[in-house]
């Protein structure tokens, strides 16, 4: 089949179609009748293949790189500002800001603290909120579905791609922060919150674990964004709604009157990643956070699936 496929027909639609098509079609039909049943591909293989394609698409988009670039600007601005303006008085500004002049490795963590309330949720909102609604608005959703991508498979792949973006976004902040800190400030053993020092190597490892922690923290929001994305064909709507949900959850989390609600908010552990900077590292909140985010993924994943499998695709 590939040999006839490979043949380059003469230019123009008429001639080339008659040259290649018959050979291709008859070959398949005679070989395995109704093609699909003959060699049924594995479900996992299908997901991986579509995921690879989705990731290529996501990271081939200029918008994705623009957002990662904007996130990278946060540590760069922090580092440059401190380099120019000098040390900040202790206790002012975001946590760890006053440690940067002593140890440039703290730029990344400081940038994460700055980015987590708004900038990270905003970019995740764009990616997750766009996942289904964006395809619908381009009309590509119908072509993916008749390919057929499979509705659940498409949702899973879209979610995994959003999760991959979460990891890319947090890694961008941490890695760029570490590099710019390395370039502009002295580097040394990292002083942990407990007042103990660890080597540069272990410090970097801890920062990577923080990136993992923050990535996990954002998975619940991604699931919410995915669900919102199935509700509309206007991607801007679901993107904005996702970002707003993140902000509202943080405001609710700051209201003591709603204390009963706090354990259920997906933003609950967003700033608790510093537990990994203690000695010994405290993993309790990491585990609690993972369970909480998993709960959000299950609930909003099921909501998204329920909505999407019954949805009439009219765009």
């Amino acid at each position: 089949m590939s040999s006839s496929e490979g043949e380059r027909g003469p230019e123009g639609l008429e001639t080339s179609s008659s040259a290649t098509r018959p050979a291709v079609s008859s070959a398949t039909r005679s070989a395995d009748g109704p093609g699909p049943q003959a060699a049924r591909p594995s479900k996992l293989g299908g997901i991986l293949s579509l995921l690879a394609s989705e990731l290529r698409t996501l990271f081939r988009r200029r918008r994705t790189w623009a957002m990662l670039g904007a996130l990278a600007l946060i540590p760069i601005l922090i580092a440059v500002a401190i380099r120019i303006a000098g040390d900040s008085p202790s206790g002012r500004g975001p946590a760890f800001l006053d440690r940067i002049t002593q140890n440039g490795l703290f730029v990344g963590v400081t940038a994460i603290i700055v980015a987590i309330p708004l900038f990270l949720p905003l970019t995740i909102g764009v990616v997750a909120g766009d996942s289904i609604a964006g395809e619908a608005s381009h009309g590509t959703l119908r072509y993916l579905l008749i390919a057929p991508a499979g509705r659940i498979r498409l949702l899973v792949v879209k979610y995994l791609a959003a999760a991959a973006f979460c990891a890319a976004a947090t890694l961008t902040v941490v890695v760029v922060g570490t590099l710019i800190g390395w370039a502009l400030f002295p580097i040394g053993p990292v002083t942990l919150l407990s007042g103990t020092e660890v080597s540069v190597g272990e410090g970097l490892l801890r920062f990577l674990m923080i990136a993992a922690y923050v990535t996990v923290s954002l998975l619940g929001l991604s699931a919410i964004g995915l669900f919102l994305s199935t509700l509309t064909t206007v991607p801007v709507g679901s993107m904005a709604a996702t970002a707003i949900v993140a902000v509202v959850a943080q405001i609710l989390g700051a209201l003591p009157q709603l204390e009963w609600l706090h354990p259920w908010l997906f933003t609950r552990y967003w700033l608790d990643f510093a537990d990994l900077l203690r000695e010994p590292p405290v993993w309790d909140s990491f585990a609690d956070n993972a369970v909480l985010q998993a709960g959000y993924i299950v609930v909003f994943g099921l909501l998204a699936a329920a909505r999407f499998v019954t949805k009439d695709v009219l765009s």
Partner: peptide, 29 residues
């Protein structure tokens, strides 16, 4: 005693030779 504050920590290390009280946000011991 390790008091886990958000993005900070207060510690009391007590031993036979004395005690350290450490406050990470003030960076004071």
């Amino acid at each position: 005693l390790q008091v886990l504050d958000r993005l900070a920590e207060r510690d009391v290390y007590a031993s036979a030779s004395g005690a350290w009280i450490y406050d990470s946000s003030a960076q004071a011991a």
